[in-house]
Protein backbone atom coordinates (compact mmCIF):
# COMPACT_ATOMS: atom_id res chain seq x y z
CA UNK A 1 0.00 0.00 0.00
CA UNK A 2 1.51 3.32 -1.04
CA UNK A 3 1.88 5.56 2.01
CA UNK A 4 0.27 8.95 2.60
CA UNK A 5 -2.47 8.35 0.02
CA UNK A 6 -5.46 10.52 0.87
CA UNK A 7 -8.53 11.36 -1.21
CA UNK A 8 -10.22 14.78 -1.25
CA UNK A 9 -13.62 15.07 -2.89
CA UNK A 10 -16.08 17.95 -3.40
CA UNK A 11 -19.75 17.01 -3.72
CA UNK A 12 -22.56 19.50 -3.00
CA UNK A 13 -24.66 18.64 0.06
CA UNK A 14 -27.99 18.70 -1.74
CA UNK A 15 -29.55 19.30 -5.15
CA UNK A 16 -32.96 19.27 -6.84
CA UNK A 17 -33.95 15.82 -8.15
CA UNK A 18 -32.68 15.14 -11.66
CA UNK A 19 -30.30 18.09 -11.65
CA UNK A 20 -26.60 17.92 -12.56
CA UNK A 21 -23.78 18.63 -10.11
CA UNK A 22 -20.07 19.19 -10.60
CA UNK A 23 -17.78 16.83 -8.71
CA UNK A 24 -14.09 17.50 -8.08
CA UNK A 25 -11.80 14.71 -6.91
CA UNK A 26 -8.15 14.62 -5.97
CA UNK A 27 -6.00 11.97 -4.33
CA UNK A 28 -2.45 12.42 -3.05
CA UNK A 29 -0.36 9.84 -4.90
CA UNK A 30 3.12 10.06 -6.38
CA UNK A 31 2.09 8.40 -9.67
CA UNK A 32 5.61 7.06 -10.26
CA UNK A 33 5.72 6.94 -14.03
CA UNK A 34 8.41 4.33 -14.57
CA UNK A 35 10.46 6.86 -16.53
CA UNK A 36 12.62 8.15 -13.69
CA UNK A 37 15.98 6.75 -12.63
CA UNK A 38 17.48 6.70 -9.15
CA UNK A 39 20.95 7.96 -8.21
CA UNK A 40 22.58 4.69 -9.27
CA UNK A 41 20.94 4.89 -12.68
CA UNK A 42 18.36 2.14 -12.07
CA UNK A 43 14.87 2.72 -13.39
CA UNK A 44 12.37 3.42 -10.60
CA UNK A 45 9.54 1.03 -11.41
CA UNK A 46 6.13 2.32 -12.40
CA UNK A 47 3.64 2.56 -9.54
CA UNK A 48 0.52 4.50 -10.33
CA UNK A 49 -3.20 4.57 -9.74
CA UNK A 50 -4.45 2.93 -12.92
CA UNK A 51 -8.23 3.34 -12.61
CA UNK A 52 -10.76 5.68 -11.03
CA UNK A 53 -14.50 5.06 -10.83
CA UNK A 54 -17.43 7.04 -9.53
CA UNK A 55 -20.75 5.33 -8.88
CA UNK A 56 -24.03 6.62 -7.49
CA UNK A 57 -26.42 4.20 -5.81
CA UNK A 58 -24.78 1.38 -7.77
CA UNK A 59 -24.88 3.07 -11.20
CA UNK A 60 -21.78 4.23 -13.04
CA UNK A 61 -21.10 7.92 -13.45
CA UNK A 62 -17.59 7.66 -14.88
CA UNK A 63 -14.87 5.02 -15.20
CA UNK A 64 -11.40 6.32 -16.06
CA UNK A 65 -8.45 4.20 -17.18
CA UNK A 66 -5.34 6.08 -16.04
CA UNK A 67 -1.83 5.89 -17.45
CA UNK A 68 1.52 7.33 -16.29
CA UNK A 69 0.89 10.65 -18.06
CA UNK A 70 -1.69 11.61 -15.43
CA UNK A 71 0.05 14.08 -13.09
CA UNK A 72 1.08 13.37 -9.50
CA UNK A 73 -1.90 13.86 -7.16
CA UNK A 74 -4.44 12.89 -9.85
CA UNK A 75 -7.33 15.30 -10.26
CA UNK A 76 -10.63 14.76 -12.06
CA UNK A 77 -13.60 17.05 -12.50
CA UNK A 78 -16.85 15.80 -14.08
CA UNK A 79 -20.61 16.27 -13.87
CA UNK A 80 -23.15 13.78 -12.50
CA UNK A 81 -26.95 13.63 -12.68
CA UNK A 82 -28.61 13.05 -9.32
CA UNK A 83 -32.00 11.32 -9.77
CA UNK A 84 -32.62 10.72 -6.04
CA UNK A 85 -30.94 10.99 -2.64
CA UNK A 86 -28.09 8.59 -2.12
CA UNK A 87 -24.40 8.01 -1.92
CA UNK A 88 -21.51 8.62 -4.29
CA UNK A 89 -18.76 6.03 -4.04
CA UNK A 90 -15.33 6.96 -5.38
CA UNK A 91 -12.74 4.23 -5.91
CA UNK A 92 -9.09 4.44 -6.91
CA UNK A 93 -7.17 1.29 -7.92
CA UNK A 94 -3.41 1.20 -7.34
CA UNK A 95 -0.89 -0.80 -9.43
CA UNK A 96 0.22 -2.47 -6.18
CA UNK A 97 -3.25 -3.89 -5.59
CA UNK A 98 -4.42 -1.35 -3.02
CA UNK A 99 -7.87 0.13 -3.38
CA UNK A 100 -8.73 3.54 -1.93
CA UNK A 101 -12.30 4.68 -1.28
CA UNK A 102 -14.26 7.75 -0.39
CA UNK A 103 -18.02 8.19 -0.02
CA UNK A 104 -20.16 11.32 -0.11
CA UNK A 105 -23.90 11.45 0.60
CA UNK A 106 -26.25 13.84 -1.13
CA UNK A 107 -29.84 14.77 -0.29
CA UNK A 108 -32.61 16.05 -2.51
CA UNK A 109 -33.55 19.68 -1.92
Amino acid sequence: MASGVKPRVKVPKSVAAGEAITIKTLISHAMESGQRKDKEGNVIPRSIINRFTCEFNGQSVIDITMEPAISTNPYFQFDATVPEAGEFVFTWYDDDGSVYNDNKSITIA
Binding site: F56, Q59, I62, E67, F76, F78, A80, T81
Partner: peptide, 20 residues
Protein backbone atom coordinates in the same frame (compact mmCIF):
# COMPACT_ATOMS: atom_id res chain seq x y z
CA UNK B 1 -2.86 9.38 -21.01
CA UNK B 2 -6.37 8.25 -20.05
CA UNK B 3 -9.62 6.85 -21.30
CA UNK B 4 -12.82 8.37 -19.94
CA UNK B 5 -15.77 5.94 -20.05
CA UNK B 6 -19.06 7.70 -19.32
CA UNK B 7 -21.77 5.87 -17.37
CA UNK B 8 -25.53 6.40 -17.45
CA UNK B 9 -25.35 8.99 -14.65
CA UNK B 10 -22.73 11.21 -16.28
CA UNK B 11 -24.52 14.54 -16.68
CA UNK B 12 -22.19 15.58 -19.47
CA UNK B 13 -19.72 13.52 -21.49
CA UNK B 14 -16.91 15.77 -20.32
CA UNK B 15 -14.04 15.62 -17.85
CA UNK B 16 -11.06 17.70 -16.71
CA UNK B 17 -7.71 16.47 -15.46
CA UNK B 18 -4.01 17.36 -15.26
CA UNK B 19 -1.38 15.57 -17.32
CA UNK B 20 2.37 15.33 -17.81
Amino acid sequence: VAQFNFGPLAAAQAASTRIR
